[in-house]
Simulated scan of single mutants.
Amino acid sequence: MKNRTNKNFLTTLLSLVAVVLMLSAAAIVRDGRIFGFNLRDGGSAEHGRHGVQASSAAPTANNDTLTVMPDGAIVVNTRLLAKDVQGYGGQVPLRIHIDKSGVVDSIVAEPNAESPDFFNHASAILAQWQGKTVDEAAAMEVDGVTGATFSSRAIITNVQRGLAYAKQHAALGNAPDATGSVDVSGASASSGGFTLGGIVALIVVLMGAVVPLFVKNRRWHYVQLSLNVIVLGLWTGTFVSYTLLMRLFSGGVSLATLGTLAAPLLMVLVAMLYPLAGRPGHYCAHVCPFGSAQELAGKLTRRKPRLSPRLNRALNVFRNVLWGVLMVLMLTATWTAWMDYELFTAFLYTSASVWVIAIAVLFLVLSIWVPRPYCRFVCPTGSLLRS
């Protein structure tokens, strides 16, 4: 028995190592970074799916952070100022255009790896600073966008740091020699600080991670499932997905982002490390909000049609083939946008695609009769965690 246990542990450990290597390779291929370290030559290449170039007029003076235009306006690039600030997919650098009178003319996004739907939703807040003087804009308190929390909070911090830099180097027409160093103490609070939703989400994840280890109570299990759906899903949009995993492996975790990432990071640790302790599937059964929603939907009726062994095998083959195809697309960077359309994102209903929401609802309805159909026959994240 002991030899069998040791063999199972070794197999699980090797699977975990394979998962870590796979995600590391994908992060390097897609973003050229691993745990926040830029592996691309020069470290300044701009890659991503969003971005607007600054004015094409030739600058009179510039460095990596501040550009002075011929008409006396300045453009602040936050790439170096906020290199420790991460959205959901990575950095969200901005270009802040300030006219010669010191008024914010516009703020545009540099290329980034955020999910397009969520970033476009979050970037609506950029207009709030437009038309304000630098002092007025720097003093503003702007709230994050529900349904795009990571992206919007990172945007806010980028703007704060860019405006702080502009205030320190307000001598228009004379670009400083600095490469982005600026005292921005406290400016990262909106990105790295804990929020009420983040604290509650962390508590719910802790409950799902610990309580089932000691309490085998069906009623309590249903309470946990409900909290997962309401708090982790609908309120905070906290779940393990390929987008989150790639964000962690590409950008890493810093003190500035620890508050925002505390609950998601604990989820990832539960999903990846619990199998080593002989608890495979713990995350899926006790923490995952979409899995919880499917299980709760299944309690609406006891009449469950029995899937034939042939159909069950065919569905499992479909799941494995789908996962294999998606892994090839991810590891070759052929098409990584599929990560934005995992059904977990349906909880972010204010930003999610209509098709994602519709398919998620379809699976929830199907789960009334078929236990956890998405988890069992589709979920790419679940396939990764079980590989």
Rank of each mutant, 00 (worst) to 15 (best):
L21V: 15
M327Y: 05
A358D: 11
D64S: 11
A57Q: 14
V52D: 12
Y88S: 07
S188H: 09
V52E: 15
A54S: 13
Q128C: 04
R95E: 13
A27N: 09
S387D: 15
A256Q: 11
G72M: 00
L258P: 11
G382F: 10
A73C: 03
H50M: 08
L81I: 09
T381W: 06
L311E: 05
A337I: 06
I34H: 04
I199Y: 11
V145I: 08
L276A: 02
Y242D: 13
V321N: 05
A277N: 15
L385M: 14
S254M: 10
A57H: 12
G291W: 03
V104P: 05
T146M: 09
A187I: 08
A73Q: 00
E342K: 07
V19I: 15
P289D: 13
G48M: 00
V370L: 10
A297R: 02
F118C: 07
P176R: 07
L196T: 15
R95T: 04
K83I: 11
D84M: 06
D84P: 08
G233A: 05
A61E: 10
F118S: 11
L81Y: 01
D177P: 06
V85Q: 00
S308W: 14
F290T: 10
S353L: 06
G281P: 14
N6P: 06
A358K: 02
S387C: 12
A122V: 10
A109S: 12
T350E: 14
G252A: 08
V215Q: 08
I199W: 12
G87T: 00
S367P: 10
K83A: 11
K7D: 14
K2M: 15
E114T: 07
L311T: 14
R40Y: 11
I368W: 05
V159F: 09
Y165G: 04
G208I: 03
V29W: 04
R303A: 13
T336V: 13
S24W: 05
I156Y: 00
T133M: 03
W129I: 02
V184F: 08
G233N: 04
W369D: 03
R95M: 00
G324F: 04
V268P: 04
R30S: 13
L225T: 03
E141I: 12
R4M: 11
R247V: 13
P373L: 07
L315H: 09
T67N: 00
G259W: 01
G278Q: 13
L202W: 03
C288D: 15
L232I: 10
A171C: 12
D71N: 09
G144K: 08
I74F: 03
A148I: 06
I357D: 07
Y341S: 07
T336P: 02
I156G: 06
T345E: 08
L364H: 07
G252Q: 02
K304C: 06
F214H: 04
Q53P: 10
G208S: 07
S367G: 13
V68Y: 05
V231A: 02
G180Y: 08
N77S: 04
D105P: 03
R313W: 10
W220S: 12
V85D: 05
R376Q: 14
G192A: 06
P93Q: 09
L362E: 09
A73H: 00
C288N: 13
T236I: 01
A58E: 15
S353F: 03
V204I: 10
T195I: 01
A122R: 01
G233W: 09
Q130F: 11
